[in-house]
């Protein structure tokens, strides 16, 4: 199985690549961008741009209530709310990491795509630029935030048994593997 959890850390470039691809999937705004990002996962799945997006929207975007809303506040604070406590906690973390978010207050800071973007950029400065200054914050972000809600998000999305989408299941399993790998190779606080 392609998404089998591997024992060891991925080569750095692969790990970076995966965080970037997942980010691109969740921040895509049209079917073409989504398809390119999806293809980068190398699923070998044949699916049209249109069906891929339609499934993606049904799972995560709307306009009907999506199967799993992609914001941490939904899982950590309140089922129906964005821009709540956990959103602002993530905002504080970004600010401390030295980020600004031009779309602040327009897109909730805890949108999964934005969080994956932060994670990717933090990995990047460590892996490519060899700067460790934010490593501890990245670990904190992973263990004290991402790991608190993304598993719940994945679980909710995978629990969909009305017309489950193989492509979405694939994306979610990749996301899950990624998180598990990040967690395992970096050590969980004892």
């Amino acid at each position: 199985m392609k998404n089998k959890i591997e024992e060891n850390a991925l080569p750095l470039s692969k790990r970076l690549q995966m965080s970037k691809t997942l980010r691109d999937i969740f921040t895509s705004q049209d079917s073409h961008a989504l398809k390119i990002a999806f293809d980068a996962l190398k699923s070998k799945m044949a699916i049209s741009e249109e069906s891929l997006e339609s499934d993606f929207n049904r799972y995560f975007i709307g306009p009907l209530s999506p199967i799993a809303d992609p914001f941490s506040s939904i899982y950590l604070d309140n089922l129906d709310q964005v821009m709540s406590k956990s959103t602002l906690k993530v905002r504080a973390l970004y600010e401390t990491m030295g980020f600004t978010f031009p779309q602040q207050n327009q897109i909730p800071d805890d949108h999964i795509g934005i969080e994956l973007d932060a994670y990717y950029q933090l990995l990047y400065i460590e892996e490519v630029k060899n700067i460790d200054y934010l490593r501890e914050l990245r670990h904190y972000f992973l263990h004290e935030h991402l790991n608190l809600w993304i598993p719940l998000f994945i679980e909710r999305a995978l629990a969909c048994n009305e017309e489950p989408s193989t492509a979405m299941v694939y994306i979610l399993t990749q996301l899950k593997s990624f998180l598990i790998r990040e967690t395992n190779t970096q050590g969980v606080p004892a």
């Binding site: 980010r23 921040t27 970004y94 600010e95 030295g98 980020f99 600004t100 978010f101 031009p102 779309q103 897109i107 795509g113 934005i114 973007d117 932060a118 990717y120 950029q121 990047y124 400065i125 490519v128 630029k129 700067i131």
Partner: peptide, 10 residues
């Protein structure tokens, strides 16, 4: 050193 994305270096 940030590569840049939706979040930008402040």
């Amino acid at each position: 050193s940030f590569p840049g994305g939706l979040l930008e270096a402040n």
